[in-house]
């Protein structure tokens, strides 16, 4: 029975990036920056509550239904990005998803706290548009390409 189920789950899957950002202008800028990555699926959610609800939806209980990478803003309505980060890293089924904090804040306190909470990287959004694009692409090249990921291994049908 389980064997019969397994192949259905193992479908050809696109790499999914979850972007949690309440500012739609920022979200669109990121979407634009990733326009050259057709193999990526970008999902944008606007607050921490939505993000956790999405990640904990019943059919996300298997790794391949989870995003490969989370790009997290810190200042979010309803549930702050720092709280979201803490929840993610305290959840045994979600903690392995790499989380990149993408923030406008260059404050050392934010930086230190993010790493303490288990962020995989903290990136201050560059002011210049082309630098921003370069950083976003570098993140995706690395975390969705070069870096090995248990999520993607699961997707490969181990």
């Amino acid at each position: 029975m389980q064997k019969a189920m397994q192949p259905a789950r193992v479908r050809a899957r696109r790499t999914e990036i979850l972007h949690v950002e309440d500012n739609t202008a920022e979200a669109e800028l990121l979407r634009d920056a990733l326009a050259d990555f057709p193999e990526l699926t970008l999902r944008t959610l606007v607050d921490g509550v939505e993000a956790l609800a999405y990640l904990r939806r019943p059919d996300a209980s298997v790794p391949c239904e989870r995003p490969d990478l989370i790009l997290l803003d810190l200042d979010l309505p309803r549930l702050d990005g720092r709280r979201v980060l803490a929840e993610l890293k305290a959840d045994p089924t979600l903690r392995m998803i790499p989380v990149i904090v993408l923030s406008g804040s260059s404050l050392e306190a934010d930086l230190v706290l993010a790493y303490e909470l288990g962020a995989n990287a903290y990136v201050v959004k560059p002011a210049q548009l082309n630098q921003f694009r370069a950083v976003v692409r570098a993140i995706c090249d690395f975390w969705c390409g070069a870096a090995a990921s248990p999520v993607r291994r699961g997707a490969a049908g181990r």
Partner: peptide
């Protein structure tokens, strides 16, 4: 300092980025 570093920079970034775009 926090407001200046984050909350003021953010909308500026948006204006500048879209102007460039």
């Amino acid at each position: 300092a926090y407001v200046a570093s984050h909350d003021l920079q953010e909308p500026l970034r948006t204006v500048a980025s879209y102007a460039e775009l």
